[in-house]
Design a binder for these strands. Sequence first.
DNA 1: GCCAACGTTGGC
DNA 2: GCCAACGTTGGC
Length: 154
Amino acid sequence: MSYWLMKSEPGEFGIDDLIASPGRRTYWDGVRNYQARNFMRNDMQPGDQAFFYHSSCPQPGVAGIVRVACEAYPDHTAFDPTDKHYDPGSDPDNPRWFMVDIELERKLDRLIPLAELRAFASDRLDGMLLLRRGNRLSITPVSEDHWNFILSLE
DNA sequence: GCCAACGTTGGC
DNA sequence: GCCAACGTTGGC
């Protein structure tokens, strides 16, 4: 059982879009970074929990909690020339990109802003990958201590 | 819109 | 394998 943080732009797909999805479930397509892919493909397990994080928006921060609903499987959007995330280098017989399904566990009572997390960057959240300068990874692991502390801020 | 921090690409 | 150029991410 591991904890994760997954970034999404609310202008594209936010926590309320997940709430509106059938079964409050969706597939996490479009990851085109090898490190993030490896986390999904190699380390994510069904039942793992993840923070649903809003990025590139007026109020970046942790918006909700989701559950990994299956093991990673090939991201079919990589094979679709009309898709924004099309990658001609991904061969259906040897897929390059993967995705998992996620289900909403709950939306947080309030969004916990990035700025608030940053205030703890050198003590209670020391070492958290999200807070590392220049971090651009869309999927990062979260330690159990950090997970519990962030939820205590809610 | 700006810019820092990366990751990727491609010539050599 | 090196590295410059380029593209992307994402906070501010």
